[in-house]
């Protein structure tokens, strides 16, 4: 039987890669915290992957990576997430990006929903700076899920949205404004 034409485009489920010896590097946050991480986990971040590749190309010893726009607490969360997903195929995250219904695996759901909303926003921002598609997908979906069934007042409180200056009840807004 001939293979289906579009089978190559479909994201394949992640297959465990042959286990290579872990290469640990130090990562420094913007507030000076130094954490340790497996390079395979760091490769989930396109930004860090490019930096690591630069070091490798020049045959420089990679001792410490500096992440200037993420604080220590958030960086620890990012690294925890990356460590869990270091075996994942990045193509899956890329394919999920365009989907409306993103399925959040149970570990990620637990990891993200236990965070206070502020930390979750920090994590998404860090994922944005470090360009970690999977974490952005799951983080944004968690934010969208947290809004489920909430009224306007509840959303304002949850998301820290300030009250609008003009009172809607007395507004004369037009359809085109």
């Amino acid at each position: 039987m001939a293979p289906k034409k579009n089978s190559a485009k479909r994201p394949q489920p992640s297959t465990p890669k042959p286990s290579a010896p872990a290469r640990i590097v130090k990562v420094q946050s913007s507030d000076g915290h130094i954490l340790q991480a497996d390079v395979r986990a760091l490769l989930l971040s396109s930004t860090l992957a490019a930096t690591i590749k630069g070091y490798d190309d020049e045959n420089k010893p990679l001792e410490k990576l500096e992440v200037n726009n993420v604080v220590g607490f958030t960086l620890k969360l990012v690294l925890e997430w990356c460590e869990k997903h270091k075996e994942d195929d990045p193509a899956i995250a890329q394919a999920e990006k365009d989907k409306k219904n993103i399925f959040i695996p149970s570990w990620d759901r637990h990891f993200l929903t236990k965070l206070p909303m502020g930390n979750l926003f920090d994590l998404i921002t860090a994922a944005y700076h470090l360009d970690i598609t999977g974490l952005i997908n799951y983080g944004c979906k968690t934010v969208a899920n947290s809004a489920k069934g909430k009224s306007t007042e509840e959303m304002r409180e949850l998301f820290g949205i300030p009250e609008p200056w003009e009172q809607p009840s007395t507004s004369t807004a037009t359809w085109d404004d």
Partner: peptide, 25 residues
């Protein structure tokens, strides 16, 4: 607890969050 607000998220991510919400929300 909440050093940044939802609206302070990077524009791309913020729009992505919004796009993932259902119609009622």
């Amino acid at each position: 607890i909440m050093p940044i607000r939802l609206l302070s998220l990077p524009a791309k991510d913020l729009q992505y969050c919004v796009n993932l919400m259902n119609v009622g929300d």
